[in-house]
């Protein structure tokens, strides 16, 4: 079983977000980059497939050389090899074309992507790859078991969950639930040493054009000052919510 795990290289969740160059670009200055949290759940699930079901795990990123430490971290967590498609990830359509090309060439049995990345929150890449390859797509996937050439899943739906199955190959948009928070692995020294020797192939991008154009960025409008209400006067709060905020 060959598993391809898509890894986004994103700012750490504690990052302060600023924009630069006249608000046309994200300011990377002083920002720590990590494996996208949604992808990390999928990566850990893939490593379990390796340990329990003998799968091989390839991690893939579409990005410039600056994302290599993130791929090395994924190798230290337990992936066998890494591929970096050497290109600026201009939009989801461009990235999906790159992933689909790698998947076709490598004859993978399943692709694990994250439900979304925490930088641009598009939630687009996994579903696009599935459509390009004509593989089933299971989004917001919180459980996955593989037996032979079939797999069963649990996914989140509005107000609940759904159990479903699909034949291999398939693509999932994964999240917490594939494994739990406490199952996530911090790379240890041995893993980090091994990761240095694992293969990291750099591929040229295939021809694809972005379908969107990024314009100006802005930070949210700052909130006005908070109105404090006395803990013994909830009638006052209700009045404010009704008359001022008009939400009840």
């Amino acid at each position: 079983m060959k598993v391809l795990v898509c890894i986004s290289h994103v700012p750490d969740t504690t990052s302060k977000i600023n924009f630069t160059n006249n608000n046309t670009e994200f300011d990377k200055n002083g920002v720590q980059f990590v494996i996208n949290p949604y992808d990390e759940f999928g990566l850990t699930r893939a490593v379990w497939l390796k340990e329990k079901q003998g799968a091989s795990v390839t991690v893939l990123n579409v990005g410039t050389a600056e994302t290599e430490p993130t791929l090395r971290k994924a190798l230290a967590i337990g992936a066998d090899e890494a591929i970096r498609v050497d290109a600026e990830p201009t939009d989801a359509f461009f990235v999906a074309q790159q992933i689909a090309a790698v998947a076709k060439e490598g004859e993978y049995d399943l692709i694990i992507a994250g439900r979304e990345s925490i930088d641009y929150n598009g939630g687009q890449v996994g579903g696009m790859v599935a459509a390009l390859l004509k593989w089933p797509f299971i989004n917001a996937c919180v459980g996955m078991e593989i037996e032979g050439d079939k797999a069963s899943f649990t996914r989140e739906i509005d107000g609940g969950k759904e159990k479903l199955s699909a034949p291999l190959p398939f693509v999932i948009g994964g999240q917490k639930g594939l494994v739990e928070e406490s199952d996530l692995r911090i790379p240890n020294m041995r893993g980090i040493m091994q990761a240095r020797k694992k293969p990291l192939a750099v591929k040229e991008a295939v021809d694809a054009e972005a379908k969107t154009k990024v314009g100006d960025f802005a930070k949210p409008e700052p909130k006005g000052a908070v109105t404090m209400v006395d803990a013994d006067n909830m009638e006052e709060l209700v009045k404010l919510l009704h008359e001022k905020a008009k939400v009840i």
Partner: peptide, 8 residues
Amino acid sequence: GFNDLSAS
């Protein structure tokens, strides 16, 4: 943050 995104 927010961003203006155009379709090409």
